[in-house]
């Protein structure tokens, strides 16, 4: 369960990214977060991921009240959340396998379990045969799949996707979104910030639109344009 109560976020430069956002996203939901650039989509994701802190208001994610977490608790909180990016954020000098396993090493998972979980994640995204490749040897879509595999390898309850198809061709974008719906079907809440009209309209899900830091629309099985 993700709950925003009157959340305001003002950046140190004075930019008011969010201006009183209240919303609730139940478990296992798939949500498109849409809106023009600078509307506050990424800020919402960053606040959930605790890369940023609210200026006022309250965010509750599952059992965590984010404002009450101290610096030492943040890493443990983040282990419940997977995050994927438009630019993948992969380690170029590590293989596909190592990139995905990295997330588990960080959590001190025993090596036997790491092998099992990484194989499962790579299998799910369809990269089993390329585990010893380096990211640069793969296409953009495949790199995004590594990023997805890394995000879900520890089976987080929430998956945050910041424009995951932003750098991909339409065909690969569809593939990625189908993959995300598959992950959603495995009991993971997915929040996907996107500009992709075709995808939002093609696979209808709940749509939350933000504009100028405010909630503009919240629609079950919505479309990109109202």
């Amino acid at each position: 369960m993700i709950s925003f109560k009157n959340v305001v976020k003002e950046y140190p430069n004075g930019f008011n990214a969010l201006n009183g956002v209240t919303m609730a996203i139940p478990e296992n939901e798939f949500v498109y977060l849409i809106g023009p650039s600078g509307a506050g989509k990424s800020t919402i994701l960053r606040l959930i991921f605790m890369e940023e802190q609210v200026t006022s208001g309250e965010i509750i994610i599952d059992k965590y009240v984010l404002g009450h977490l101290n610096d030492a608790q943040v890493p443990f909180y983040r282990r419940n959340i997977g995050m994927i990016f438009q630019d993948y954020k992969l380690l170029p000098r590590r293989t596909v396998y190592e990139n995905v396993a990295f997330a588990l090493h960080v959590m001190h998972v025993p090596s036997k379990k790491i092998k099992q979980q990484v194989s499962y994640a790579l299998d799910l995204v369809g990269l089993s045969g390329k585990s010893s490749h380096y990211p640069r040897e793969l296409s953009g879509g495949e790199q995004q799949k590594i990023c997805i595999a890394r995000a879900i390898v520890n089976q987080p309850s929430i998956l945050l996707c910041d424009e995951p198809t932003g750098n991909l061709d339409p065909e690969t974008s569809w593939e990625i979104v189908h993959l995300l719906t598959k992950i959603n079907a495995h009991n993971t809440t997915v929040i996907m910030a996107t500009h992709d009209t075709e995808i939002v309209d093609g696979i209808p899900k709940r749509v939350i639109a933000v504009n100028k830091g405010k909630l503009a629309r919240d629609q079950v099985l919505g479309t990109y344009i109202e």
Binding site: D71, A72, P75, F76, Y77, R78, R79, M83, K89, L90, L91, F102, A103, V106, M107, R150
Partner: peptide
């Protein structure tokens, strides 16, 4: 730097 930010991203503690 990149590696550190990815470590933080996947929930690595400061000590780690």
């Amino acid at each position: 730097n990149e590696e550190i930010s990815i470590m933080q991203l996947v929930g690595a503690t400061d000590r780690f």
